[in-house]
Simulated assay, not measured.
Amino acid sequence: MTSVGAVLEIADLSVGYGGTPVCGRITARAEPGEVLGVVGFNGAGKSTAARTIAGKQPMLDGDVRVLGLPVNEDALPFRRQVAALFDEDAFFPSLSLREHLQLVARGHSVSDPNAAVDAELDFFALQERANAVPASVSSGQRRRLLLASALIRPSSLLILDEPEQRLDPVMRERLGDRINAYADGGGTVLLVTHDPALLLSTADRCLLIDDDVREIAPGRAAAEIAGR
C-alpha cells in the first residue's frame, strides 16, 4: 500500500481497547521532512492512536506502514526506523543519565557515541546532572532525558506524544527548533501536542482526532487546542 516517497501511511486505522474504538477511523500519510500534528480534546484518542502507530498496542482494524514495513515493535527493521516518546518513565534505576544515553547511542550504532551523548546533555541542560540516577533528578529532567533518548538515535519516523510536558517555555522553544531540524534532515514527525505555539512553529499539516477524524490547517488546529 506504500506510495513512493511516503514514510508513514495509515489506512482506515481503528484504535481502541477491548474491541471498542475510541475515535473515528484514521487515514493519513506523511512524507520525508513533514511534521504531522495530531490534536484533539482530552480523551479523544490521540495518545491511543500514536501508541498504536508505534506498535505499543494492537490496532483494531486497518493498516499502518513505515517505509513499507508493517507495525511490529518486536521486529528489528521496524524498531530501527521508529523512535518514540510517550508519557512513561522507563529507566534503569542504577544507570546515570549519561549511561542511559550511552546505552541508546551504542545500541543504535551512533558514530562517536560519547560526543553525541555530550551534545544531547548540553542541548537539554542535563550536563550538571549527567552522573545522577533518574530517581534523584526532577520530573522535568527525566522528561528531557526521554527526549534526548529519542533524538540521539537515527530514525526515519519520530513519534512524540505531548513532548512539551514538564518543559519550561525556553526548552519548549528549543524543542520546536529541534523538531524542525529533524524534519529538515529528512525525518518525518508525528507530533501529538496541546501546545499551540509548538504546533504552529513545527506542523505542516494536522489531524483532528474526534468521532470523525479529519485533516485541518495548523492555524485552525492551534485555535482548537487553545479553546477558541
Rank of each mutant, 00 (worst) to 15 (best):
M1T: 11
V4H: 14
V4E: 14
E9L: 15
D12A: 15
L13A: 04
S14I: 08
G18D: 13
T20V: 15
V22Y: 08
V22P: 08
V22M: 09
I26C: 11
A28K: 07
A30I: 02
E34C: 14
E34W: 13
G37A: 03
G37D: 01
N42T: 08
G43M: 03
G45A: 05
G45P: 02
K46N: 08
K46W: 04
A49S: 14
R51S: 12
R51C: 07
T52E: 02
A54M: 03
A54P: 01
G55T: 01
M59R: 15
D61M: 11
G62V: 05
G62S: 09
R65Q: 10
V66T: 01
G68Y: 04
E73M: 13
E73A: 15
F78T: 00
F78G: 06
R79L: 08
R80L: 12
Q81R: 15
V82G: 07
V82T: 01
A83Y: 06
L85T: 00
D87A: 11
A90H: 12
S94T: 09
S96R: 05
S96I: 03
L97W: 02
R98S: 06
R98W: 04
E99L: 07
E99H: 10
H100P: 06
H100F: 05
Q102I: 05
L103W: 11
V104I: 13
R106I: 10
G107R: 08
S109F: 12
V110R: 01
V110N: 00
N114A: 15
N114S: 13
D118G: 08
A119T: 11
A119L: 09
L126F: 04
Q127S: 10
E128S: 15
E128F: 13
N131S: 12
V133I: 14
A135R: 14
S136D: 11
S138T: 05
R142H: 00
R143G: 00
R143N: 00
R143K: 13
R144I: 01
L146M: 14
L147Y: 01
A148V: 02
A148C: 08
A150I: 05
I152H: 00
I152Y: 01
P154M: 10
S155P: 04
I159R: 09
E162C: 14
P163C: 06
Q165R: 15
L167W: 07
R172V: 11
E173N: 13
R174I: 05
I179C: 06
I179W: 05
N180E: 07
A181M: 11
Y182S: 04
D184H: 13
G186N: 06
G187D: 02
T188L: 14
L190T: 04
V192Q: 04
V192N: 06
V192M: 07
T193K: 11
H194L: 09
D195A: 14
D195W: 09
P196W: 10
P196M: 10
A197K: 13
A197D: 12
C206N: 03
I209C: 03
D211K: 15
I216G: 02
I216Y: 07
E224C: 12
I225L: 11
